[in-house]
């Protein structure tokens, strides 16, 4: 690991300035992703700016929103009374991620910004456009069973990336239409969750739309319309403590067996949480049934494209959508 200087600023302004004015400086929160990457020499910050003492640790009720500070731990969010009562989808997604120990360390902001788990991104013996732009993509001609089926180029070019974003929390936040609050050297702005992570296009090194020096301060979730009929389904290689091959966040507002509102998002299938807008449209106003769920899943899968080892996702994903919807609707 490269040597670094450790600093612990006490104000947001100071922290932002330290990173915005130094291309080698990086924020560190729980450290569970960044330290991993530093040990692999994939991240090599010259200055580590410890943000753990900044005042971003509150969960607060605001008018029409729940505001969760960027430094609240994943385990704290998942056991918070108000979150349990109004956003059970979030709780399910958080508890499906990582382990008890890691959730006690991982922060909300860090979780959104964790980097891909593509094995070639981690292995410096292989080319990787995300690690070294223009070097090629090890996964395209390699083992790509973990990789994306949505938002991937028809004809991969030398700058392509087919990695997926590994966060479970982000998938739930996407379905709940959360907003990410960020503060940078030029002030504060809000980014809708769906615009926060990006498709790789020709800049896979850029995971999100966050600018250099911008600090996530909080995420805001609109008040619960989905306190009841929700399910986070995670398909993985083992029963627990593994990243998603495919995951589905399903939230339904059901009135007398009719679907008033529905939100669907998938994880493990794209470079960002994948909202299923067309499937949502098809389901809205319909009566709850397995048939309609199956139709929605078919619509959702339009445009999916597989590589050599991940064609199984084309079957697993629609089944996972149907299953998540059934469980959310308590349809057996």
């Amino acid at each position: 690991m490269k040597p670094f200087e450790y600093v612990r600023p006490s104000t947001l302004q100071e922290a932002i300035e330290l990173v915005a004015t130094n291309p080698k400086a990086q924020f560190i929160a729980g450290g569970t992703n960044l330290i991993d990457l530093m040990k692999h020499n994939i991240a090599a910050p010259g200055k580590l700016v410890d943000i753990n003492h900044l005042p971003l640790k509150k969960i607060e009720k605001r008018d029409g929103f729940l505001r969760i500070g960027a430094l609240v731990l994943n385990s704290e969010v998942a056991s918070h009374k108000r979150v349990l009562a109004s956003h059970p989808l979030l709780v399910q997604a958080l508890n499906a991620g990582a382990s008890g120990q890691l959730r006690n360390m991982a922060t909300v902001g860090g979780n959104l910004l964790q980097r891909t788990r593509c094995p070639y991104f981690y292995d410096r013996a292989f080319p990787c456009n995300k690690r070294i732009p223009g070097s090629g993509c090890g996964a395209l001609g390699g083992i790509n069973r973990m990789h994306a089926i949505f938002g991937v180029p028809e004809k991969p070019d030398p700058r392509s990336c087919i990695a997926v974003h590994p966060s479970d929390l982000s998938v739930a936040l996407s379905a709940l239409e959360a907003t990410v609050w960020v503060q940078g050297p030029h002030g504060e702005r809000q980014i809708p969750m769906n615009d926060f992570h990006r498709l790789p296009n020709n800049r896979p090194e850029q995971d999100t739309t966050l600018a250099n020096g911008e600090l996530i301060t909080a995420v805001e979730i609109p008040d619960a319309v989905f306190p009841k009929h929700v399910h986070y389904l995670k398909v993985r290689d083992r029963a627990s403590y593994a990243f998603a091959l495919v995951s589905v966040a399903a939230a339904l507002d059901i009135d007398q067996n009719r679907i008033k509102t529905v939100r669907l998002a998938m994880g493990g299938v794209a470079h960002k949480p994948w909202r299923l807008f067309e499937a949502e449209k098809l389901l809205t106003g319909q009566t709850v049934s397995e048939t309609i769920f199956r139709q929605a899943a078919e619509v959702a899968m339009q445009g999916a494209r597989a590589f050599e080892h991940n064609a199984y996702k084309l079957k697993v994903a629609p089944n996972a959508i149907v299953q998540a919807l059934k469980l959310a609707a308590s349809l057996s």
């Binding site: 006490s10 609240v72 704290e76």
Partner: peptide
């Protein structure tokens, strides 16, 4: 975690880095 958990008091960085 409560709604109004106080944040850690942190003395200013003394700039010795």
């Amino acid at each position: 975690m409560t709604d109004d958990k106080p944040d850690d008091p942190t003395p200013p960085d003394d700039g010795t880095f």
